[in-house]
Computed example of a mutant assay.
Amino acid sequence: MKQWILAPGADFSRLQEREVEQPQPGHGEVAVRVRATSLNYRDLITAENPKVENRVPLSDGAGEIAAVGKGVTGWNVGDRVCVNFFRDWQGGRFRNSYHDAALGGSVDGMLSEVVVFPAYSLVRIPDHFSFEEAATLPCAGLTAWCGLQRGHFVSGDTVLLQGTGGVSIWGLQIAVASGGRAIITSSSDAKLERAKKLGASDTINYKTTPDWEKEVWKLTNKQGVDHILEVGGPDTLGKSLASVSNGGSIAQIGVLTGFDAPNVSLFPIVAKNANINGIYVGDVESFDNFVRFLNVTKIQPIIDRVFPWEQTREAYDYMKSGAHFGKVVISV
């Protein structure tokens, strides 16, 4: 079978295709024939990290069960599934040991024709989803879902989304489908127009309105937003602190502006009795709940572009360009 690996190096050119023997499931495991994968910002960071090598990349993928190992119950050949980002996080409080089985980083990921994982790490994909659509769920979709759930989102709440990448667009769709109000930022007016068509009530171009936190304050009648999916990191956290409402919640998710410490006062989070939750994807139980929500709401993921298998490097380049709206997918 074929798979892509990260050979030694520190850029996308080190992505190499190779032929390997097809793995077989052991006791308690299943083999999944992968049909589609998708890219996340984390995958770009991983590919540019020279410490990660000889690793099959990508955390996100969907396919169908090709073989079932001994001792597996509840799963059959042909079932359509995803694998959870943190293989061993089935539910409950996060443990540091779960990092040891993060797909596409600590262990081999999904950019392979066939993968083998424990049956407990599988999640059945929504009934109305294609494999390409389901491939957007394990990281971006579940992250947005958990960010809102951990903040105790309810119908009528206002959500602020930063940019139009995978997590933010998923957050927009989840919020709108749940009866929430969504405000979204971008540097592109064209992307903001697309976001409006998905249900965004208000849009802010952060290039023409660099003090966008002041605009959020105006749009909310000086109340602030109930939830923020904070994907920017150190350079946007201060603006998020200024934008969140009293008792509101910031889901700290991304590091698009780097890993440095933010140069901001944390007092607003105290003064507002607000919360900051660190969100690093989610567990199998949350994933199952998310799928049930999708089966009811019939949300369709937003896929910007699907690249064929042989154009995997081009997919990475396109993702890094920032031209995408929603998700970038690779067919397998």
Rank of each mutant, 00 (worst) to 15 (best):
D189G: 08
K191S: 07
L192R: 00
R194N: 06
R194E: 06
R194M: 11
A195H: 00
K196T: 07
K196P: 00
K196I: 03
K197L: 12
L198T: 01
G199C: 02
G199V: 03
A200G: 08
A200E: 08
S201Q: 13
D202V: 06
I204Q: 05
N205H: 12
N205G: 09
N205Y: 14
Y206R: 12
Y206Q: 09
K207F: 06
T209M: 06
T209H: 06
P210S: 03
P210M: 07
D211Y: 06
W212C: 13
K214E: 11
K214P: 00
E215K: 12
W217D: 13
W217A: 12
W217Y: 09
T220Q: 00
N221T: 07
N221L: 08
N221Y: 12
K222H: 08
Q223T: 09
Q223N: 09
Q223L: 10
D226F: 02
D226H: 05
H227L: 01
H227K: 06
H227Q: 05
L229M: 11
E230G: 12
V231W: 03
V231C: 05
G232Q: 12
G232K: 12
G233I: 15
P234Y: 12
D235A: 15
G238N: 10
K239N: 15
K239F: 14
S240V: 03
L241D: 02
A242V: 08
V244Y: 01
V244R: 01
S245T: 08
S245M: 03
S245P: 03
N246M: 09
G247F: 04
G248P: 07
G248D: 07
S249N: 12
I250N: 01
I250T: 03
I250M: 03
A251Q: 11
Q252L: 14
I253Y: 04
I253W: 03
L256H: 04
T257F: 13
G258A: 14
G258E: 13
D260I: 07
D260N: 10
D260Y: 09
S265K: 10
L266H: 06
L266P: 02
L266F: 15
F267Y: 12
P268V: 05
P268N: 04
P268E: 04
A271K: 04
A271E: 12
A271I: 15
N273I: 04
N273M: 07
A274M: 03
A274Q: 02
N275C: 05
I276S: 02
G278C: 11
I279V: 15
Y280Q: 08
V281C: 07
V281E: 10
V281A: 05
G282I: 07
G282T: 08
D283I: 14
V284Y: 03
V284N: 00
E285S: 15
S286D: 14
S286K: 14
S286F: 15
